[in-house]
Design a binder for these strands. Sequence first.
DNA 1: TCCAAAAATGTAAGCGCTTGCATTTTATAG
DNA 2: CTATAAAATGCAAGCGCTTACATTTTTGGA
Lengths: 345, 345
Amino acid sequence: MRKKSVPTLEDVALEANVSTATVSRCLNTPDRVVEGTRLRVLDVVQKIGYSPNFGARALAAKRTNTIGAIIPTMENAIFARGIQAFQEELRELGVTLLVASSSYQEDIEAEQIRTLTARGADGLLLIGHHRNKEIYSFLERQGVPVLIAWVYDPNEPTISIGFDNRQAMKDLALEVIALGHKEIGLISAEQKGNDRARYRITGVHDAMQENGIAPSSLRLIETRYNIESGATAFAEIMNSHDRPTVVMCGNDVLAVGALRQAKKMGFRVPQDISITGFDDIELASVADPALTTVHVPHREMGRTAARMLVAMVNESKQFKSTQLMTHICIRESLSEPPLHPNAST
Amino acid sequence: MRKKSVPTLEDVALEANVSTATVSRCLNTPDRVVEGTRLRVLDVVQKIGYSPNFGARALAAKRTNTIGAIIPTMENAIFARGIQAFQEELRELGVTLLVASSSYQEDIEAEQIRTLTARGADGLLLIGHHRNKEIYSFLERQGVPVLIAWVYDPNEPTISIGFDNRQAMKDLALEVIALGHKEIGLISAEQKGNDRARYRITGVHDAMQENGIAPSSLRLIETRYNIESGATAFAEIMNSHDRPTVVMCGNDVLAVGALRQAKKMGFRVPQDISITGFDDIELASVADPALTTVHVPHREMGRTAARMLVAMVNESKQFKSTQLMTHICIRESLSEPPLHPNAST
DNA sequence: TCCAAAAATGTAAGCGCTTGCATTTTATAG
DNA sequence: CTATAAAATGCAAGCGCTTACATTTTTGGA
């Protein structure tokens, strides 16, 4: 029976007849070891299947080559593409990514932040600015650089990479209004702890204001982020006595839910009711009718975020927030309002 | 200026006037410390914002309360729901989840396995049985229990939790054939290194065989896992001289791509061509027409996997593979074959 | 009040690795 | 061939934590 315990640096050293220091150097700074020795050592490493203990390494070297990311959810595609790109780029930079998800809950996020930090993440990617002050000071105390993604807000103290949610949604709302819509419904994710949602709502308000439509006339429903909730919210809006002519949605997932519910309730989209989304995830173009939405450059955001964060870890100079541009993606689900709004159903 | 360095156990001990052992116990086995002391210590912990160093802890305790999972991709929803459930359950068990994705590449997966192991994952969740022998022996040497998910195959030496991909696909194919289809197309993920794909193909073969249809008549295309590829493959199949009357797809993502392409090419689904999927992810019910597919109990699989794996880590007794049942989910995209197959387009 | 057993706490030895510094070996030049 | 600088390697001190074992304190019965 093979010796059960996992081989350590020392085992390699003994077997290769060198000191542990040399083995360590073979692994970390190979050019500081003469070729013969190096080959011999690496051979032994192979042979006995040595694999360095990460904890010990982190402890001794105070560096882990690891970056953590905490996203609100893995369950829908909103963050998936961006994170995937983030991970790919990190890999190329020789950095490992640890992902955790918080289920949109602040306390869970805080816990995950502690976990990842304790695990020695050299840097952290977080979504959105909104979170407890204490967390920021904790992070600062730990000396862990943080990059905020999916938002661009140069006024926040923490560096961010992303887009202007408020402006993007405003642009879309302007488009909607330009088509003649005055009665607007909005299905949003819950604002609490979610600044993206908040910014987007404000964007709609802005556009209404600018066109002399009272922002208070907005039919706003806040709900959880999934298709079902989108459907329910849509039903609620459409069953009220003053139906809007367009239902804008805080993201594509909600919009797809709305779309489905519209179909179920017998509304034709966009003839009877227009629906818009946000994010331009795959779902948006697959839906029928295809969703008019705001295109977000997820992959670009992920890759850039990776490079920025790694730079932040390595260099201590001051970085600045980066803005990415979104654009409106006109597809089929948005048109002029019907002439006789309540004709159908 | 505050002292820059991160507080350690010793700092807490000094401040609270106890030994480091006591502080450690307050954190790990609070009932072994008298209340007064415990409160005082925890107070100090709070005050100076102490957070234990994971590496040191893992090093000393030889246990990390962490489980790793490596999935082929985060980019589409196939694994998302299962992993989300897995994570939720782990959380309840007080275990942290580390997720990595391999982009369907064996070498990347091997690397991630090493990484997660080195990081001290107490156990590992992997998808599918197929991988290099060496990896299994490496894992065994490291003493890291492994659970394979998304597959059930009691003949494999490694414990698995999942469903019988072959049988499930066979059942669906039987259904398809029962409707009268004889000309069958199949869009599959690449078989290489993907036993789920392989099992599913075999399942279709089985059903054909059983009905006296030559398995060799199957129009099979292997492609990458995304909507676009599904669309391309569908076009290829339908542009060939002997079109099938039904295109089965290895998963819903491919099926949605096929659906989209069908629409684009002017085929009515299911009147002109039937399409089926596999997995029953959200996309399937949202698509138009809604996809006939195989429902996989993702959440149940995730939760059960979590409990099993944690048990495997804690108890060393022998575990056995668990099978979950799938069922066919009949929706709109499948019907009888058209009377005059090549009437349209 | 005293004593043994139980409970609480302290002491200190590692866990496996990196790295500054000391020592040995090799290369270079005179 | 020798002296010296440079390269390679070894030595050993931690990194921050857990835990077996030792010591001190508390508890409770006689």
